[in-house]
């Protein structure tokens, strides 16, 4: 890349530096032997990892976040995939409006969505905050579920399903043996994006938190406001490590090009 396009290549390298260097500072700080969140670290120790992993609010928040992200992802896919199929293959009027509706959570500010959910569901209907959060996160993920699976559906030849029908497959059979396998990379990437969106979300989770249910980013934010020790850096490093592991698995099993290739096309 650098040999043929020197400017673009340099910009890309600069971009990587800007994105990665701050992360390296956090990672380095988490291994400090000292007591404050400061760079360069003083000495080397794993004490803050131990502290983070035994700090109950972090661990229960991590479990909450994972639960929330996982269930919301499943829900978003369960709603988004059939919606995508209907939009792309169904004979329904107003497809553009319906797709726009599914994509609108990208545009509406999350604080507005959060406040609306808070007012209507938690205050109005007295819904518990986990259910409300789950609903909010699911809505937030729908654009990914619809857009990303839609992109891979748009690439698949509609004649494939017809061919399967002609060979004797019922519509359901044709969907499960032909369409679904072709959509798998798209569904995988939609799931991955949804999961990360939920896991990293702050505005919605901040507005809809409660004493019993709080997500990890909110808990960490809370913690930073009260104390300035490196435990939060250690927790951040652990999350980073987890994300890298997921990324490696995704790359090995499906391949990034295939997962994210569908988005831009």
């Amino acid at each position: 890349m650098r040999t043929s396009r020197p400017v673009a290549g340099s910009l890309a390298v600069l971009g990587y530096i800007i994105m990665i260097v701050p992360i390296l500072f956090v990672v380095a700080t988490s291994f400090t032997g000292g007591r404050t969140l400061r760079f360069p670290p003083e000495g080397f120790s794993l004490q803050w990892f131990e502290a983070a992993l035994t700090y109950d609010p972090f661990i229960s928040a991590l479990v909450s976040s994972l639960q929330l992200a996982l269930i919301a992802t499943v829900l978003a896919l369960a709603i988004g995939i059939p919606a995508t199929l209907a939009i792309h293959r169904g004979a329904i009027p107003g497809k553009g409006v319906i797709e726009g509706l599914f994509l609108s959570p990208l545009i509406v500010p999350e604080l507005v969505v959060g406040l609306a959910l808070y007012q209507q569901l938690m205050i109005g209907f007295g819904l518990a905050n986990f259910e409300t959060l789950l609903l909010g996160h699911t809505v937030l993920m729908l654009p990914y579920a619809v857009r990303v699976t839609g992109a891979s559906l748009a690439l698949a030849d509609p004649a494939l399903e017809e061919a399967a029908r002609g060979l004797g497959a019922s519509p359901l059979r044709a969907f499960f043996t032909i369409t679904l396998p072709l959509l798998r990379p798209g569904i995988f990437s939609a799931g991955l994006l949804s999961f990360l969106t939920s896991f990293n979300n702050v505005p919605l989770s901040l507005l809809l938190q409660s004493r019993d249910f709080r997500t990890l980013p909110v808990t960490m934010l809370d913690y930073v406001q009260q104390s300035y020790d490196p435990m939060v850096a250690a927790m951040a490093t652990l999350i980073l490590a987890g994300t890298v592991v997921i990324a490696v698995i995704a790359e090995r099993t499906v391949g990034f090009a295939k997962i994210f290739g569908g988005i831009n096309r």
Binding site: A159, E162, A163, A164, R165, G166, L167, L182
Partner: peptide
């Protein structure tokens, strides 16, 4: 179509990309 037992060859061929040639023919 699935109850007609007709063999159709599409202009785009519409081969199932995730299946082998034999699996396509055996579908």
């Amino acid at each position: 179509p699935e109850k007609r037992n007709l063999g159709m060859v599409f202009q785009s061929y519409a081969l199932f990309p995730h299946l082998t040639v034999a699996e396509n023919v055996g579908y």
